[in-house]
């Protein structure tokens, strides 16, 4: 069983491009997670992600600087297309990635059969949150770390830690989506492209913005209007789960979630005490500027936490969706 008390956690940071990866490493990331171009990872956005050659070069760069690289192969292959996902896993192993992050149970099996010595992490997209589910993945496929869905309180994470034989990775900052990770079909309903199988929530090819003469901004996804931001009002991502809708009884209300971002700076000591091994920052779709600012701020905060000081935080509000932050379900189940 893991030793829960104040083991220095790994700061796991996002990278959408090789330049983003170098920025994260230089800003103090202990590990960087990234994906290959195509649908095999959950951030399949235009212009984003790595070619096999870029991945190999980037891993070399990270290793020279003492950082790890974790390859996300964390979408779900549709029937008949598993080879593309297997190829991504093989590329990661051949490139000497420090771990492969998978969500699909079939890809976990492929890892266990073909790359039993390669470190395997279970993606948040797998939605494994109970001791029984996590122990199953550990026992059957040799999973060494689970990335927890953002539905558990710190107390629940602590209880979970006592029961499972693997490391825990928890999100501490960034965009938060539906609280049914790996199971959301909203984007698929609106566009025909699946978050889970095509790797893209609200595909850019289906997004349209209309800037009105009165200064308002209308965001649309496919045939659906997601939101209308008044002049001067902060805008949000054009995702269905963060949209405002009109219904017979209410108008302009957030039916699912509000555009707020997760920030667990103040809970860092509690998370470490609870046995969290790795602290994850969301945002592979974001820029070098975001990566540099957020990684730098959390490097300082985590180091302060480990030295027994109150973690101070640079203001990151300007980078967050909705310019509002939350501790989400980590603080209370009453959230949304």
């Amino acid at each position: 069983m893991n030793q829960p008390h104040m083991q220095k956690p790994e700061l796991v940071c996002p990278a959408g491009t090789p330049a983003g990866l170098r920025t994260a490493v230089d800003a103090g990331a202990d590990a960087v997670y990234c994906g290959l171009q195509g649908p095999t990872n959950a951030r399949n956005f235009p212009g984003l992600n790595f070619t096999p050659q870029e991945l190999s070069q980037s891993i070399e760069y990270a290793h020279e600087k003492g950082a790890k690289v974790l390859l996300a192969v964390n979408s779900f292959p549709p029937a008949g297309r598993t080879q593309e996902w297997k190829d991504s896993i093989d590329t990661g192993v051949q490139s000497h990635a420090d771990a492969i992050i998978v969500a699909d149970i079939g890809m976990a099996q492929y890892m266990a059969e073909h790359h039993p010595d390669q470190r395997l992490h279970l993606s948040v997209q797998a939605g494994a949150s109970s001791p029984e589910a996590i122990k199953f993945y550990c026992r059957e496929f040799g999973v060494k770390r689970v990335v927890l869905p953002r539905i558990l309180t710190v107390k629940e994470i602590s209880d979970l830690h006592a029961e499972i034989p693997c490391e825990i990775e928890a999100f501490i900052f960034g965009n938060i989506g539906m609280m049914a990770e790996g199971r959301c079909s909203l984007s698929s309903y609106a566009t025909g492209l699946s978050t889970n199988m095509d790797g893209v929530c609200s595909p850019a090819s289906h997004i349209r913005y209309e800037n009105k003469k009165d200064g308002s901004l209308v965001s649309k996804l496919g045939d659906f209007t997601i939101d209308c931001f008044h002049c001067g009002e902060n805008a949000g991502y054009p995702t269905i789960c963060k949209g405002r809708y009109d219904a017979k009884t209410r108008s302009g209300y957030y039916a699912f979630e509000e555009p707020v971002s997760l920030n667990l700076t103040r809970l860092l000591p509690d998370l470490v005490q609870a046995g969290v091994t790795a602290l994850k920052i969301e945002g592979r779709q974001r820029s070098r500027a975001y990566v540099k600012a957020v990684v730098h701020a959390f490097r300082k905060a985590v180091d302060a936490c480990m030295e027994g000081r109150e973690p101070e935080m640079d203001t990151l509000l300007a980078l967050t969706e909705g310019h509002r932050e939350t501790q989400g379900a980590f603080r209370t189940k009453a959230w949304r």
Binding site: P46, A204, S205, Y209, N234, G236, A289, E321
Partner: peptide, 28 residues
């Protein structure tokens, strides 16, 4: 790389119209 495109979009300092995919690809 001094400012984040998404953050500029949130604050409405950046406006996008037309083919969003082309803009996102260029930005990345």
């Amino acid at each position: 790389g001094n400012m984040d495109g998404d953050a500029l979009f949130f604050t409405r300092d950046l406006k996008i119209e037309g083919d969003t995919e082309a803009i996102v690809a260029l930005r990345n």
